[in-house]
Design a protein around this nucleic acid. Sequence first.
DNA 1: ATGAAAGCGCTAACAT
DNA 2: ATGTTAGCGCTTTCAT
Lengths: 341, 341
Amino acid sequence: MSGSIKEIARIAKVSRGTVDRALNDRPGVNYDVAQRIKKIAEDMGYRPNVVAKALASHRRTTVIGVIINSEGNEFFNDVLAGIDAARQEYFDFGIKVEVIKMKGYNPKEQLEKIAILRNKGIDALAITPVSDPEVRDTLNEMIHSDIPVVCFNLDLAGVDYVAYVGCDYFKSGQTMGGMIGYVTGGQAQVGIITCLSVLEGAQKRVEGCRQVLKEAYPGCEIVQVLEAGDDEAVSYQMAMKMLSEHKEIDTLCFIAGGVIGGLQAVCELGLENSLRVFTFDLTPGAVEGLKKGIIRSTICQQPFEQGYQSIKTLFEVLLNDHYPETDHIYTELNVKIKYNI
Amino acid sequence: MSGSIKEIARIAKVSRGTVDRALNDRPGVNYDVAQRIKKIAEDMGYRPNVVAKALASHRRTTVIGVIINSEGNEFFNDVLAGIDAARQEYFDFGIKVEVIKMKGYNPKEQLEKIAILRNKGIDALAITPVSDPEVRDTLNEMIHSDIPVVCFNLDLAGVDYVAYVGCDYFKSGQTMGGMIGYVTGGQAQVGIITCLSVLEGAQKRVEGCRQVLKEAYPGCEIVQVLEAGDDEAVSYQMAMKMLSEHKEIDTLCFIAGGVIGGLQAVCELGLENSLRVFTFDLTPGAVEGLKKGIIRSTICQQPFEQGYQSIKTLFEVLLNDHYPETDHIYTELNVKIKYNI
DNA sequence: ATGAAAGCGCTAACAT
DNA sequence: ATGTTAGCGCTTTCAT
């Protein structure tokens, strides 16, 4: 078992202060002495005691900032619950979590939120990044001034983050394709309602779905793809439009939000028993649709874990200097049907 | 913000030692004084600092014993991984985790393992309990001598445990029924290979499946149910027997282990493309079957979480005196198909 | 029954 | 550059 700083000090015949400085690469210690100390620590398999560490550095309180696109999107309820669970768990470690919520995907607005947190002086940041070069550059700037960043739920290419914590969107699309094939027996006329085409994730889902249908279920044809931008009202309109204009559509997919609005259209058109509906995530609207049998399946991405692991990952970096093995921490994709909600 | 023991001591005009004694119901403190101290703590919303607590009580190391039926059952690999993750996480809190593995479901053997751990002197126990009255009584005896117990993966009625951590078996069976309905279009002749009828969980799965097929997919008929007792060789034989004797069976379900053996029989009979196979859990055999397209879906119960949460739950009880809200901590049931493994 | 003090393993401010 | 010391919040031993 690992031994303590005290023991290393005894063996190296130096003080505990020096050992602490050496092992944590703090300034003010002779290079050779530091090497010797590190060697000893290495040899005895020394692992610092996280608990003692946390208690000692308890005077300065460390702040993890969170920026999350959760307003008006019920999917994020569970993500927030995960963040809060981690917050409680790490409170006694002297870690505070400061959450700023925002609505939609406006880069300007997000840059403002980032600025607010920077001015307050955070030690790490977890963010659902808007796909925008300026956001990317700002995040990289923070990272280079030693503020580790985790992107969650949404990935953003080019950011030098500790990790992306979220689902594999392409794979989730493939999974939807697989479920469509199962439920329809391989014969379907498919309509898709997606959100903003700006969101790369949504695009990938459509692509993943398209690929599986093409390769494994050629009898399933994608008739139309419409955008509804995560908005219930627009989703309602788009579903109305699509289902009125394309009577042949017997299978409807929602790539993101707008499930409640869309289902309303389905019901008003009297298609709730014939149309096969597929969705993502387990929002209240999806739960209701599943229970009623309108939605055949929904594909979940572990929202609670996305929130929880984002904070946990940053905690490990801050307190333990421990980086995850990979910078893509994929949450599981899980199919839910009526019976396993 | 919670305040500290020091602050309470100052307000109550007593020493920190007395406050500690009062708040932890330790002997040797005047009743009235204790009440006064508790009142003050209550009023200021005092929450003890877990980190400091752990560090202070670090001299006595606390041991969590684990007895797990993992030998020869690959399902438990992930459960063990979860236990190990928790072990590492709580190591610095002065918690040791001692795991004893066993094979099969022999009550005698399990009672022996329990005795071993008791003699070593554990502070808490996590166990996959064998369904047996003597096991039940022994566990209750431990609980009454203040050793909290968590049952995981397998529930055992009548045990006064902190919690059962595992899946809802009936629901998992229903979910399989739902998937059978989806994939077969509601027309199927179903054969079921289950494990020991002793295992209540397996029984419940069969019942859940039967219920859904009966109510929602009456065109699906259960032709035969055979026992294979989680053994690959027996499973092979049973599958052979079933599929040879009942040529009408076009849908095969594995309720527990024995997937590899069973699939071998399927392949040898040349049924790998026609037969619809359904399984539980994501064992290596199931993964292979899914990839090859023989298995249509498998239903998972979060094995990692079962291990991790069992230890975490006991940790909270031991260190924080915090009991879970409910004594049935159900892990999620998740459907996996070829595309979301 | 209560208080005083040492100490858990580590950090950080202050000496030298 | 290195050593010394005073904590972090709590537990526990030893006095009283």
